[in-house]
Simulated scan of single mutants.
Amino acid sequence: MTIYSLYIFDRHCDCVYYHDWHRTRPVRAGPNDRPGVHRLPTASGPGARESIFSNANSNSNSASGSGSQQGLGMGQPGQQQQQQQGPAPQANGTGAASKRGLPFDEEAKLVYGVVLSLRNMVKKLSGKDDEQFTSYKTSQYRLHLYETLTGYKFVLLSDPQADSLRFVLRQLQTGPFVDYVVRNPLVDLDSRTQGIDNDQFRTAVDRHIRSLTMFGP
Rank of each mutant, 00 (worst) to 15 (best):
T24F: 03
Y112S: 00
G93T: 03
L72D: 12
L118K: 15
K99P: 04
I52P: 04
N92W: 15
Q83K: 04
H19S: 14
G47K: 14
S60V: 06
S117V: 05
P89Y: 02
I52V: 07
M121R: 05
G127M: 05
H38D: 06
Y136A: 07
G101I: 01
N92R: 04
K99Q: 08
Q70P: 08
Q132L: 11
L72S: 15
A63K: 15
T94V: 11
Y112G: 02
D130V: 01
P35N: 05
F104K: 00
G47V: 10
S68F: 06
M121I: 01
H38W: 00
K128H: 08
D129W: 11
Q70D: 02
Q85S: 08
L102I: 02
E50A: 10
G113A: 05
N32E: 07
R39W: 00
V27D: 00
S62T: 02
Q132N: 02
Y7E: 05
T134S: 13
E106C: 12
G65E: 06
A108R: 01
F104N: 00
L116T: 09
A88S: 10
P41T: 09
T24I: 08
W21L: 11
G73D: 06
S60P: 09
E131G: 06
S51K: 01
Q85P: 01
Q90I: 01
S5F: 05
V37C: 06
A91L: 09
A29Q: 13
Q79R: 10
Y4F: 06
V111T: 00
L118S: 09
V37A: 01
M121C: 13
F133A: 04
F53S: 00
P103F: 00
P89F: 02
K99C: 04
Y17P: 02
S51D: 02
V27G: 09
S5P: 00
D33N: 08
A56K: 12
P46F: 04
D130C: 01
E107M: 12
M74E: 12
S44V: 02
D20L: 03
D10L: 12
Q85T: 03
K99V: 09
Q80F: 06
S98E: 12
S58I: 13
D129N: 13
F9L: 12
P87Q: 10
V16T: 05
Q69V: 07
G86P: 07
G67Y: 11
S44K: 07
Q84N: 11
Y4E: 14
G47P: 08
E131T: 13
L110W: 05
P87I: 06
H19P: 00
G73R: 01
P77T: 03
E106P: 06
K137S: 03
S135V: 06
A56W: 05
Q76V: 10
S60T: 10
P89M: 02
V122P: 12
E107H: 02
Q83E: 11
D130A: 05
Y18G: 04
T2H: 12
Y136K: 11
R100A: 07
G75Y: 11
Q70A: 15
V114Q: 15
